[in-house]
Design a protein around this nucleic acid. Sequence first.
DNA 1: ATCACTTATACTCCTAGAGAGCATAAGTTA
DNA 2: TAACTTATGCTCTCTAGGAGTATAAGTGAT
Lengths: 321, 321
Amino acid sequence: MDPRPTTSSAEHDIAADLVAVLVAVTSGDPRVLTIQDQRALPSGPFELAHRSLQSGLRAWVERQTRLPLGYVEQLYTFADRDRADATGKHVISISYLGLTREQPALGEHEARWRCWYDYFPWEDHRAGPPPLIEQALRPGLRAWIAAASDRAAQRGRRQRAAMLFGLEDHAWNEELVLQRYELLYEAKLIPEAHRGNSQAFELGDTVRPAAPGKPMMLDHRRILATGIARLRAKIKYHPVVFELMPDTFTLLQLQRCVEALAGRQVHKPNFRRLIEQQELVEETGETSQEAGGRPAKLFRFRRTVLAERAISGTKLPISGA
Amino acid sequence: MDPRPTTSSAEHDIAADLVAVLVAVTSGDPRVLTIQDQRALPSGPFELAHRSLQSGLRAWVERQTRLPLGYVEQLYTFADRDRADATGKHVISISYLGLTREQPALGEHEARWRCWYDYFPWEDHRAGPPPLIEQALRPGLRAWIAAASDRAAQRGRRQRAAMLFGLEDHAWNEELVLQRYELLYEAKLIPEAHRGNSQAFELGDTVRPAAPGKPMMLDHRRILATGIARLRAKIKYHPVVFELMPDTFTLLQLQRCVEALAGRQVHKPNFRRLIEQQELVEETGETSQEAGGRPAKLFRFRRTVLAERAISGTKLPISGA
DNA sequence: ATCACTTATACTCCTAGAGAGCATAAGTTA
DNA sequence: TAACTTATGCTCTCTAGGAGTATAAGTGAT
């Protein structure tokens, strides 16, 4: 073990990049900020001027996009060899999840909001399991299963696919976004898997039809998957949804927001019961009748709960897991 | 937004360090591997030869300590300005949690296993709330509360302290390890808070008596807190405990291991019920009578559950939260 | 041999919370 | 006025999880 803080000669120069998964929910769609023809996540260099990584990200995002970043959380740090840049220098990417409200009309650097289900169409189960799993994914998965070396390996692959994609009466678990992406990647059903690493085409690896869903540069789609998974897990025990809501909202709007993120429907009475009995919100006294039915009460998030409670003590009724 | 992958001129040279929180549980104590007179966590440079960060850490740890690393998980990436090394170069620290079984007699670089409660004595509630919270912590906390600018701020501080340390009929939540450390740090009850940043002694900041617990170099104690918190959260829904157990074990040994990590007692009948009804273990047919009572059946972890189940579907009876 | 003690293991009871369904209220639009 | 939409309240049921109790099967001391 190398005793700190003597600077070892083995240390090499490395560049650090910040990559952001910026999420907003607009009119019932979970959206993510993209650049470069919607094929990349916004990223920028980590500069010496920044006090810390988190403040570096905040400063950079708010300067570039003028978005007020409500909630920021570190996701994961990558440093794969493929990511070395033109000079051969190692690039470390530190990815962050950021939540914000609504989208202003930002137009710089062709930044665009895009529904995240465009990149992961199999993740949207709000109207039940999407048919595209059976139609577009299953054949490729079958081919991957059959391509395993022996019977035991085939059984393992089948079991893993069934568990992750909710096949053969496995229940759908919306949190396993990253694992599903990694399986599809491993099964060469993701276009990104064919780039860079040319060893991928050895042996009996036939090129299988790509899974639906828009690809991204480098490993940005994996980073996005990480962000979605983290957010889906987080909303169950931490009141972060409110960072995505306007100041006042109806309970149905809140529910739609949660459903958009979780990618599954929520039982309406239970949802209201949970929100209200936890006293996460308070009435504003006003009502909204945007939706042509009985006017709904408007609510506002009780920010004080963040101080009152142990921060891990809130729950949303998403069965899953 | 800066379109990748053009290398921006604003990128500066940075060194990347890997820091490991290596955990083992021996004879009922949760231990962590330390170096430098038990004042630092093992760390090493990230080298170009490594395929990825994770494999870099694995290779380096296994080479230096000859420990078989069962489970590895990334914790957090730090890059605070204080961490700049002698040359003024930014140092990014990527911290990892690693689980291993037992300790061999490794003696290199004065590496030693040490009980993690030596660094966080207030975290051990296995025999009820430790008296040292009332005796050694409470006075300092009171002083910090009283030092707030106005009544509202005082109330906020009191509430936060009560929530985190289980005072004033708040329940103890064993997962909030990091938040507790950060509060003590902020309250200047942690010796590490007095180093480096000399601005800390402005205004009415009196030097309060330090909290008990062995300090560490740099922010290593914070990293350790992060690791403990992550592990305490993880054992509740993922069967990682078994990475810390020998091949065969009794249910009581397993329970003691969980209790050591969680820092609280567990209801024995409920624990056994949960473990058995989830079919996490299988009998070996043998029995153990190390403990001078009725011989206990020996069990073994059913590794297949990792494939069978969605990995998030296991639970341990730790009320908390 | 008996007793005290330790540990293992099996049951029962209770309650809070989550899932699901139904009923009613109060608006809108055709 | 009817049909439809959305809001809101209530009930029922099931189960997981928390807590307590009882019995079994060993050890070591008197």
